[in-house]
């Protein structure tokens, strides 16, 4: 069988580094609006405890890194949603960023493939 593959364009990667246990809050908030395919990695963070002094004990050094690929048109909306869900306006809760992706690829449903077949 001849195999073909399609690259996806206009994709942006949103990455959020949050306190351990908060990763699932984000993925749940994303699933609610139909965004799937998030990844959670375990990580260790360094620095915020030192900056906060005595209050640093309240901050978990264990971190979770959530990364999710979204369409570039939707970035602002989803970026905001993650920010609010993870309560990143609280000191020590974490940070997030969006990076443009050159290209991406995954399984594309045939119904969509056929739409672009001629191009």
């Amino acid at each position: 069988m001849k195999r073909s593959f399609t690259t996806l364009t206009d994709a942006t990667l949103i990455t959020a580094v949050v306190q351990s246990g908060c990763g699932e809050v984000i993925t749940d908030a994303l699933l609610e609006i139909g965004i799937q395919g998030s990844t959670i990695h375990a990580a260790m963070g360094v620095g915020i405890r030192e900056r906060l002094g005595a209050l640093g004990v309240a901050i978990d050094a264990e971190r979770e890194v959530v990364s999710v690929m979204v369409s570039s048109d939707e970035v602002d909306r989803i970026f905001e949603r993650i920010f609010l869900a993870a309560k990143l306006d609280v000191p020590g809760n974490g940070f997030m960023y969006a990076t443009p992706l050159l290209q991406a690829a995954t399984y594309v449903p045939p119904s969509i493939l056929s739409k672009y077949a001629g191009q």
Binding site: G47, E50, L52, L55, P91
Partner: peptide, 17 residues
């Protein structure tokens, strides 16, 4: 490392969860 100065509201926000 510069120390971060937090207001009362932020301290509550950090400690509460």
């Amino acid at each position: 490392v510069p120390k971060l100065k937090l207001g009362g509201g932020d301290v509550v926000k950090v400690l509460q969860p």
